[in-house]
Design a protein around this nucleic acid. Structure first.
Lengths: 194, 194
DNA sequence: ACAACACTAGACAGGTCTGTCTGCTATCGT
DNA sequence: ACGATAGCAGACAGACCTGTCTAGTGTTGT
């Protein structure tokens, strides 16, 4: 329709197809378990393209995790924007999480999972720490906006609940632990604001 | 000193050395990352002994995880036995956990970690479910003893905190999330007993 | 003394994994 | 028209991994 952009990407680039395939397979079965061959087969891409684009499997893993982080981040921010009060926005974190954990493909935190199968000092650990720091920062802001006396302390409690809900969401998704976490968070928020 | 048992195990058996090596290496670096060769080298054992004892790497992984479960279980029960009141015993779960997470080698839940790097339907998943069921059962008993109106519901909350503390203990052990979890648990226990 | 047993050392087969390289094709900007 | 860019297909090298097999050693119960 629109002649908008002169750069019209008729097809999806090899890079994006690789990232999509990596996202599915790495998340579902683990970065170590899934080999390069399965990725390129699923992506419909030549092996040479993978290595000219990413250089190594390690860098593909990094790109996969960073894309995940960006996705989680924008999904969370978009979800929270729908709430009006600071209180609802803080608790909304668990609504957004719940919408993820109820999906049948949910397999827990991609960053934690990736570090669990990599030796210490790997790229996974790197991205996991960055993602975790961002989450903690978000929680601290939300806690401050909601009027917590000690925003950092409340953020720590929220992160604990968040972690627990992700683990529970993987092991027993039918119990919807994210909504259970939300209820506990509400109690803690009340206590943290007098 | 004592001439007690006629069966005097002068040396540690190959089986036990293998389990000890597997425990260290699998837990520290992941069951998939660590190969058979490193295990037998650390254990000082011949490869044939491994295969005549366990049959396959998969079965060694199962034995490793089951030994972990047994260890966690007895440590937890021994730790809880030191508390007098049902309330202290319930909260003591987090004291026992804290004594683990502060160790420098702590790397999170061995069962969760193992399942994170195995495809669905693996032996790891099997043992992880068994271990989780036992933990939930313990928490339910403790909640009932402590006078919770809905022991199963409180147990679910405790498990959420327990999971969160294990994740946090791996990512930021210096924050000692197990004691933070203990404090939250105390609040929930108060609310659950009126 | 001797058979049974538990174990060691290491070669080997067969598979899989990452990463490289060659050769070919299609598209696009100039 | 043409060179640059991006991509495809697949062979190949080299490492590593699980699992098997042979052959030898030391200990123990009878």
């Amino acid at each position: 329709m629109s002649a908008a952009s002169p750069i019209a990407p008729a097809k999806v680039s090899a890079r994006d197809r690789l990232l999509a395939a990596a996202d599915e397979l790495f998340y579902a079965e683990g970065v170590h378990t899934v080999g390069i061959d399965r990725i390129i087969e699923r992506a419909g891409v030549a092996k040479a393209s993978l290595y000219s684009t990413f250089g190594s499997k390690d860098e593909l893993v990094r790109a996969y995790l960073e894309a995940r982080h960006e996705r989680r981040r924008s999904r969370m921010l978009a979800g929270l924007a729908q709430f009006d009060s600071p209180r609802e926005r803080l608790l909304g974190v668990f609504d957004v999480l719940s919408s993820q954990t109820v999906k049948p493909q949910y397999r827990g935190c991609a960053f934690y999972n990736a570090t669990a199968e990599s030796p210490p000092g790997s790229v996974s650990e790197d991205v996991a720490k960055k993602s975790r720091a961002w989450t903690r920062g978000l929680f601290t802001e939300l806690a401050a906006d909601a009027g917590a006396h000690d925003p950092a302390a409340l953020a720590g409690q929220l992160l604990l609940l968040y972690d627990g809900a992700m683990v529970g969401g993987r092991m027993e998704p039918e119990l919807d632990p994210a909504v259970a976490a939300r209820a506990i968070a509400a109690t803690l928020l009340d206590a943290a604001t007098d």
